[in-house]
Amino acid sequence: MSQDAPNGPLLDPEEGTTRRNFLKAAAVTTAGVGAVAASLAPLRELDATFDKEAWLQKHYHELTPAEMDKVLARLEDEAKAEYGVDVTVRDVKPKAKTKYAYALNLGVCVGCRRCAYACEKENNTSRAPGKQYIRVLEMEQGGIDLETANHQYDPETVPQPGKFYMPVQCHQCDKPPCTKVCPVNATWKEPDGIVVVDYNWCIGCRYCEAACPYWARRFNFEKPVLNPADMNTDTAYLSNRPRPVGVMEKCTFCLHRVREGRYPACLEACPTGARAFGNVYDPKSEIRYILENKRVFVLKEDVGTLPNFFYYFDA
């Protein structure tokens, strides 16, 4: 073949294909393929089967309503196959003329962490290791100093004398640093102010997790561990549906609840009434009253992210 080519043979003449060379090359190739196959052996334990539909699924914003219906049905099937539970997955859209804000009265928060546990249950977050969206900080009276805050406090009773408690969750910023850094637009701010993640579009680079000044984002380092008997089966695409491994997640103000006129789970669980939530465009709402009449402040105002989560002290 190549021996007759105008520019000379493909290989140097003295290196031409002899039976010996051919056998040598074949042996090397066989050994190489075998070695690579052997090193990839752990992949046999991969229980996920390749689903072309899921792999080729488009970005949330590019799905037509018909395509979305198919995706939702597929996600319900996936949840059924994975956990044996009938989960409904809906696409709950934002309401017009609505912007949500949250206010938390640090004067009455006792640090019981019931908000964090209610959130865990409502949002189907992984239990092992626990992925709570709400972190309650125990602080010394006299200042709001995160560097000396106690994250792991565990006394017999709360509140402890001389301490106050500050729950921190996603602040749904108006200038969110997390959405800015995402290389694939897998996270964005919805018209009602809620910052969401498309779990089927996120590539898991964790840049948003590095960017958040409030440590509000969580990554699924492994497949979420959920107890089927304890799962919330009322779920939404952008919030509490069961998450896949390797993607980011975060607090969504329970958008599947609040967009249908209910309160976030953390607010309902609070025994002291420290939490207030509502639509800031509604002049008669409680949140509007608090923002207008209480001396509210935001955490880390200096980072300029314009949070929609406010704190105040009121006895």
Partner: peptide
């Protein structure tokens, strides 16, 4: 290797 979902590289 740092990506949580290398299978979705095409999103980039």
């Amino acid at each position: 290797v740092d990506l949580g979902r290398p299978d979705r590289f095409w999103h980039m």
